[in-house]
Design a protein around this nucleic acid. Sequence first.
DNA 1: CCCGTCAATATCGTCGGACGATTTTATCTC
DNA 2: GAGATAAAATCGTCCGACGATATTGACGGG
Lengths: 253, 253
Amino acid sequence: MQVHEVTRNAKRPANRVASGDAVTQVLKETIDADTDKGSASDRVAAAIVKDIRMGRLVPGQHLLEPELTGRLGISRGSLREALKHLAADGIVTLSRFRGAYISTLDRKAVYDLLDTLEPLARLAARKAAENNRSAKMSKELRNSAMRLEELQASGKRGDYLTERRYFYDLLIEMGGNGELARVIPLSRADLFRAQVETRQNEAQRRKHAEGYRLIAEAVTAGNVGDADRLMGEHFAGTRVTMDQLADEVFPAA
Amino acid sequence: MQVHEVTRNAKRPANRVASGDAVTQVLKETIDADTDKGSASDRVAAAIVKDIRMGRLVPGQHLLEPELTGRLGISRGSLREALKHLAADGIVTLSRFRGAYISTLDRKAVYDLLDTLEPLARLAARKAAENNRSAKMSKELRNSAMRLEELQASGKRGDYLTERRYFYDLLIEMGGNGELARVIPLSRADLFRAQVETRQNEAQRRKHAEGYRLIAEAVTAGNVGDADRLMGEHFAGTRVTMDQLADEVFPAA
DNA sequence: CCCGTCAATATCGTCGGACGATTTTATCTC
DNA sequence: GAGATAAAATCGTCCGACGATATTGACGGG
C-alpha cells in the first residue's frame, strides 16, 4: 500500500522553483505548501514520498526520528504513525534500534513491482476510458501528458516524476474505482522511478514520456481496448529499459 | 493496504474451539495464541481482522479506543497505529471525535473490490503455478483446498474464512512475488466475505469452495494457463452470486 | 406532550516525557 | 593495533495531559 495522498481530488503539482536551501527547511516547506490537509502523519508521509520523487531523499538513506520530529515540528507519535504507514507500503524499512531507511529495490523487487503494477494500471486505463464523462478531466489528462513530454525534455526529473504521479492519480480518479485507488502501489512506483530515473538515457526517457500521451489519447477517446493495450506496451517498454540497465543500479537489498 | 500479517511463513490456522466467553477476553486470547510476534500494533491489527473473519466484529460496529486499550492491554499510541493501518486498508473507517467503525461495503465497493482483486489473484495463481518447486507446499495447498470443502460443508463460517485466507497466503508465498504479497487486499476481501458469507445459499457456498480445489490442482500441476483461467472463473462465479444477493446485504456506506 | 437551546460529557488528534532493550560508537587497557 | 568495557544512540512502548469537536442529556417554552 502506498501513501494515501487523497487520490480523489488529485492535486495539480505546484511548479515550485527548487531553492537549494538548507535541507532543514525543505521538508517543512513541502508540508506547508503542498500537503496542507489531513492528519499530521498523513502529511508527513506524503511529504517524504514527495521528497523521494524530488531526489531530496535517496534510497538507502537513513532517517532518524529525533531529526525528523525536529525538522517537521511534529511529535514522535505522529512521526511513528507515518513511518509505519510508509513501511507497510514498502517505502521505508524499519529496523529496531537502528532506525528507518528509505527502501532500496533490487532487480527482483523491480520486476515484481512491474508484474504487480501492470494489471492494476491496465485496469485503471480501461476504467478511465470506459467511464470518462468529464470533458474537463479528459482535457486535464491530455494536458498532463503534454507537460510530461515537456518536463522530460527539460530535464527536470523531480517535476517529471511529480507530474507522472499526478497523471496516474487523474487516471484512477477518472476510472472511479475506489478500491483501485487504495491498492495500486503508486508510491512504491515513485520510489522505483526515483531510483532508476537518472540512469536512463535520452531515448529511453523520451519513449517513456511518449507512452503517456498515447494512453491519454486512447483514454479520452473512450477506446477501452487501446487504452489497455497501450498501457501494457508501456510496461513492456519499461521492462526492456530495465533489462538494459546495469546491475549497479539495483543494489543488494 | 491490508493488514500485513507476515504473508511469508503463512501460518496454518489453529483449530480452536470457539468458547463463547465474555467478549472482554476474546480479543486478548486471539492475540496471545495466534499473533504472538511482531509489534504491538501489528498484533492488534491482525487480531481485529481475525475477529472480523470469525464474526466477533461485524461491519458497522463501533470501536472505542478506551475500550480496546483496556481489553487488549496496550497503550493508546499502539492502538492508534493499528487503527490507522486498518483504515489505510479500508478495514475500519476513522471519523474524528466519533471513533472507529468496522467498514461497511456497499454494492459498488464490492464490485470495485472484485475488479481490483481479480487481476491480482490471477497473477498470484499464475506465479504459483509457474514457480512451484516445493512439493511440500503443493501438498499443503491441496490439503487447504480439501479442508475448505470440509469446512464449507460443516458450516463453520469463521473457520472457513480463516482457512480461505490461509489458502491465498500460501498461493502468494508459492508465487514468490513480494510486491504482490504487500499489495493484494486480502484483509479487505476478508471483510467482504464476512459481510456476505451468511447470506449465501448452500449451492453458492459449495461452488465457491469447489473453485479452490480446481485452482489448487491446476497450480500444483504447474498448469499456468488453467490456473489463471480457473481463478478468473472463480471470480466470475462470485460476481454472479453477488448479483443474486438482495440489496439489503449491502447497506449504504 | 413536543421541540429548541444550552451545558455536560465523550472521544479523538496531538503533544511531551519516561523507561527498558538493544545496537552502535567511543574509550581504555594490554 | 586488537580486544574488552563503558557510554551514547535509538527504537518500541507506555502514561498523562490538553484542545477541539461531536454527542448526549437537561431544561424550559410553547
